[in-house]
Design a binder for these strands. Sequence first.
DNA 1: TTGTTTCTGGACCGTTCAGTCCAATAATGT
DNA 2: ACATTATTGGACTGAACGGTCCAGAAACAA
Lengths: 199, 199
Amino acid sequence: MRDNETHMSSPEKRTAGPGRPRNFDEAAALQSAMHVFWQKGFEATSLDDLTKAMGLSRSSFYATFGCKQTLFLRALEHYSENGIRGLKEVAETAADDPVDAMMQALSDPKGGPRGCLLVNCITELAPHDDKVAEIGRRHLEDIEDLFAAAIDPANPDGVRDRASAYSSLAIGTLALRKAGLPAERIARTLKQARTVLTS
Amino acid sequence: MRDNETHMSSPEKRTAGPGRPRNFDEAAALQSAMHVFWQKGFEATSLDDLTKAMGLSRSSFYATFGCKQTLFLRALEHYSENGIRGLKEVAETAADDPVDAMMQALSDPKGGPRGCLLVNCITELAPHDDKVAEIGRRHLEDIEDLFAAAIDPANPDGVRDRASAYSSLAIGTLALRKAGLPAERIARTLKQARTVLTS
DNA sequence: TTGTTTCTGGACCGTTCAGTCCAATAATGT
DNA sequence: ACATTATTGGACTGAACGGTCCAGAAACAA
């Protein structure tokens, strides 16, 4: 993505009528694409990577998703929605210490060493791509909101700043993971920092 | 960088002798290259970008630096050395509260919204490139060492974990910056978190 | 079956990429 | 001045990129 204004050919709306129906699941394809972007980043992901992972021909790809950039943004939205919903569930499930549970979930995401797709994309693209920055900002704010809601209401001092600190801390550990530092040490760090930040 | 094993043609050692001397400063060229990588990342930086910024012809470029990948690694090393030295100076200068000074410096680096070159590269490349991961790991550990040394010796409990928490926190805020969150809010968050983490 | 509509694979296009190569040039020692 | 050596710019290469296009196959309604 070297340029903000891409060709952006939009997928023509096809009238539903008689004729061959598509034999792939658009949502599943989107999910697959998301995983590729997650693993390789935007620039390093080629159309061959995408079509192969999605099980689509190039034609179907462009007819359905328009262009790489459009698909990418949809994948980011998809990731964000799923991630925030999952994080909310984590907080609700671990009602005894939702903040700690959220920190663990953020720091050790299901994506494994791939980290958080949106944090990756913020780092790679946000400074040069407004749309990515926008989605990223909203994602981060959603996370902060969840932290703010999970913070013990008996300790309401500087809730917003503490929520921000929690998410920054968790996000920061992703870089440590990616650099190859042992997960065990990171978890311990997080645990310790959390007990201190609570007070 | 789609592949770990690149062509890696090494720059032939030129015997010093009579003949035209090079009329550019290798260190300055390296510095310029570093800034380009810092701004655009590895993948998005083309050789034209590099040669233009460095003021070199393609021939001189390859004769001097071998290949893009090699230059890149040298730029990372250069950045790390400079950064760690600068951070150490920050800590020594602000002797009253070196931890706070370091956090500020890390969170609001001279690179501005570009964040930290090494954190960017860890995010973009470390999972697929061992050498980058190695340099990044060392950089992060150096930062942690500086924090550990700066922590009040009257409070020696869990020094290592606290140092790790400080750097994670500072590094995490870089993502917030890149996503476009206002610097003022981030600084406030950091300040508040720091006062709590000290206790 | 026939007609219609949509999907599919692969060929194709123009651009850009990292890297190579060479004739011309410029700075040195003698 | 001359021979020597390294630098320089720019042309070039082969591969990979994102995106387009089309002929044919496949699935529906009738």
